Simulated scan of single mutants.
Amino acid sequence: MTEPKYETVKQALQQQIQAGKLQPGDKLPHEEDLMKQFKVSGITIRKALTELADEGVITRIKRKGSFVNGTQPADHSSHLIAFILSAEDNFDVSYMKIIKGAQQAAAEFNYSLIVEWSNENLAVEQASIQKMLDRKVDGFLIYPFDPVRSKDNYQLIEQNSIPYLLVDRYNVDHPSYFSGCDNYDGAILATRELIRLKHTKIKFASYHFFLHSEQERFAGYCSAMRQAGLTVTDEDLLTRIDYDGLADSILKREVTALFCSNDKIAIEIIGQLTGRGLKIPQDVSIIGFDDWDHSSNLSIGLSTVRQNFEEIGRNAANLLNQVIRGKTHSSNTKILSGVTLVIRESTSENPYA
């Protein structure tokens, strides 16, 4: 009998993966391109991709595409890791970089990564976790929106004796395995750069100060300021920004630089201040944290602290694999990825020093 067309497509894609033409983490061509390549309908392509996803060969992410997990073990045993992403912005490329790093590392140990997108809603996050528990996954990677509020959801995983690891954010009062970046030292790098540029009136702008990662960045900022002999008061922490008041303080030279807890708030601040007639960096220097993909594409390139998101993902999957295999002796091992300073046009020497 003639082989179904979707099976032909499926086997051809599997052969490309096994031959190394498609590597773990690679994105498959768009459905339209596959239709042209195999001269079949969209229904046939979707059927082939659905079966590959069900078998753990690829991961399909809504509005983003299909990504290679890697070849499966010969015995076809179920080696599955769930990645729960409680994301504010599903189109943030940094999430995709973390997923790619985790997929590449997981594939090396014959694990398939199942990505489940959640949001700020705890009930949705819990439903995603339960869904993956029902699939008998071997472990969880979790990127939480608020790791403190999600504590009960972690306990649901613990009750099922499944190992899990938090990515980027963690709860200091609920120890867990963790993969993130060196927030404290990154903040010191950023603050020292502003001080090197002769800025002494530097404020810290927060995005979500309830996150321990932002608190660590603030602590690094405070440390660098005090080491330079500069005082830090409660007024130097901006959690709800009055942009008219901030613009006025800049014009009065009461503020000459801002260290922002992430690039999103830095970009927002640049937009708000330039909209009020201020010039960056002539009137105020601004530095961010993350090296978000849009940071270098602004009319004013944003100086920032760069995280290696793919490395964070790889570290997360590697550590979780060690936990699953019983190779760790601590219940709260943390791996911190290094950071680097990236200088662009949003910072300059203080002209009033």
Score class of each variant (00 low, 15 high):
127 A>Y: 06
234 D>I: 01
195 I>H: 06
288 G>S: 09
105 A>H: 10
8 T>L: 15
68 V>W: 10
272 Q>L: 08
174 H>V: 07
8 T>I: 15
327 K>Y: 09
47 K>D: 10
246 L>N: 06
118 S>K: 04
292 W>K: 02
204 F>V: 01
256 T>D: 12
114 I>S: 11
116 E>T: 12
251 L>C: 10
42 G>C: 04
321 N>Y: 11
213 S>P: 10
208 H>A: 10
80 L>D: 13
336 L>D: 10
82 A>Q: 01
141 L>D: 02
263 D>I: 00
53 A>I: 05
59 T>H: 07
113 L>G: 01
216 E>H: 09
64 K>F: 14
255 V>A: 05
24 P>M: 03
29 P>E: 06
236 D>C: 03
106 A>K: 00
222 C>R: 15
180 G>P: 07
50 T>L: 13
4 P>W: 10
303 S>H: 06
241 I>Q: 07
106 A>E: 01
303 S>M: 08
277 G>P: 07
20 G>I: 04
121 N>F: 12
23 Q>V: 13
107 A>K: 02
247 A>D: 04
304 T>N: 06
104 Q>G: 13
37 Q>F: 07
124 V>G: 04
13 L>P: 06
49 L>K: 07
136 K>Y: 12
334 K>E: 15
264 K>I: 13
282 Q>Y: 02
179 S>R: 03
22 L>M: 13
201 K>P: 11
253 R>M: 12
351 P>Y: 07
277 G>R: 03
245 G>Y: 08
310 E>P: 09
266 A>N: 05
52 L>P: 03
92 D>R: 00
58 I>D: 08
297 N>H: 15
325 R>N: 13
108 E>N: 12
177 Y>R: 00
62 K>C: 07
179 S>F: 00
74 A>Y: 08
181 C>Q: 13
237 L>I: 04
98 I>P: 08
23 Q>C: 11
293 D>N: 14
317 A>C: 03
232 V>D: 04
245 G>E: 13
86 S>N: 03
201 K>A: 13
95 Y>E: 01
91 F>D: 14
26 D>N: 14
269 I>Q: 06
314 R>T: 14
116 E>K: 09
245 G>F: 09
245 G>M: 06
79 H>I: 03
130 Q>C: 08
312 I>P: 09
43 I>Y: 07
171 N>F: 01
342 V>F: 09
46 R>F: 08
313 G>N: 02
15 Q>I: 10
17 I>M: 11
127 A>N: 14
70 G>N: 05
63 R>E: 15
192 R>T: 12
101 G>V: 00
259 F>A: 02
101 G>E: 13
197 L>V: 04
9 V>A: 01
321 N>P: 10
42 G>D: 11
179 S>E: 03
29 P>G: 01
173 D>C: 08
35 M>L: 00
304 T>I: 03
103 Q>G: 09
97 K>G: 12
250 I>A: 02
317 A>E: 03
10 K>L: 15
314 R>F: 09
91 F>P: 06
21 K>C: 07
138 D>R: 04
325 R>A: 15
189 L>V: 00
342 V>P: 08
266 A>D: 02
153 N>P: 04
132 M>S: 08
45 I>M: 07
38 F>H: 01
252 K>N: 14
177 Y>N: 00
221 Y>M: 01
